[in-house]
């Protein structure tokens, strides 16, 4: 049982961004992807979520054997258990967080079944407390006027409420001060489970002090070029990415 990415190629317009990416995240593990800006990390996250701007030209992604790309609409993929916390979450004017998450949970129920409102709010407030999000946020419009850090917390709140099987967190640490980073990491660690796989995308080693990964991968120019244990993150932090790129070139 895994989130399995095989030989993934994806374009934006004419330009190829993902160039044969392979990665397997077994259930129960946390993997990290590190890589320079522009290496294609967010592209990977958005391609999996089904963003319409990207075209998959080859390869496949399976979710416990289910072919992700056979699900045309992003909502099918989400309901199948995939959750992507975006690097730049969208603002939805006039739609409150409470209504938004409620609609997302309602979408997972069989037709005709209604979400229990009391239970819903109990759960919502519990998760918000964990993430130290003030209660009055429930009536604020999704991400509208939020600081960078508030947006990231709101992404993790959604993740905690929706109970996905595989999570992809794209730079969830950026925009967070150290206290917020600790809180968000706790929220993510609380979701660690043998029943769940996670992929954490970052370009700072710092996050991995709090969310300790089982495996670290390095992404260069649309491919995973190196994988190792968590010490790899420290090595990247100390020595930069140039040596990885050289090594990758030699291997090629």
């Amino acid at each position: 049982m895994s989130l399995n990415i095989q030989n993934l190629h994806a374009n934006i317009g004419e330009r190829e961004i993902l160039k044969g990416l392979n990665l397997e995240i077994p259930k129960g593990q946390i993997h990290a992807i590190m890589g320079k800006n522009g290496s294609g990390k967010s592209t990977l996250a958005k391609v999996m979520a089904g963003h319409p701007d990207y075209e998959v030209t080859a390869g496949e992604v399976t979710l416990d054997g289910l072919n992700l790309f056979e699900m045309a609409e992003p909502d099918e993929r989400a309901r199948a258990g995939l959750f992507v916390a975006f690097q730049y979450p969208m603002e939805i004017p006039g739609v409150t967080i409470a209504n938004f998450i409620r609609a997302a949970l309602q979408a997972r129920l069989p037709k005709g079944e209604e979400l229990d409102a009391v239970e819903y709010y109990e759960l919502l407030y519990k998760k918000m407390e964990l993430l130290k999000i003030p209660r009055n946020f429930t009536s604020r419009a999704v991400n509208e006027g939020f600081s960078g850090g508030e947006k990231k917390r709101c992404e993790v709140l959604q993740m905690a409420m929706l109970n996905p099987v595989y999570c992809v967190l794209d730079e969830t640490d950026s925009g967070l001060d150290i206290d917020a980073l600790k809180i968000v990491s706790e929220g993510v660690n609380a979701m660690r489970s043998p029943e769940r796989g996670m992929l954490v995308i970052t370009h700072y080693q710092r996050l991995l002090d709090y969310i300790v990964p089982d495996v670290v991968h390095v992404m260069v120019d649309g491919r995973i070029v190196l994988s190792g244990d968590k010490s790899l993150a420290l090595k990247l932090e100390a020595n930069g990415y140039d040596w990885v790129e050289k090594e990758a070139l030699q291997q090629a």
Binding site: D75, V84, F86, V95, N99, I101, A103
Partner: peptide, 22 residues
């Protein structure tokens, strides 16, 4: 906006109505 809502599992038609509501 539609993509973001769909990425949370809300179907496109409902997402559209939520945007209008918003």
């Amino acid at each position: 906006e539609l993509f973001y809502m769909q990425a949370r599992g809300i179907d496109r038609d409902k997402a559209r109505r939520l945007v209008v509501n918003g």
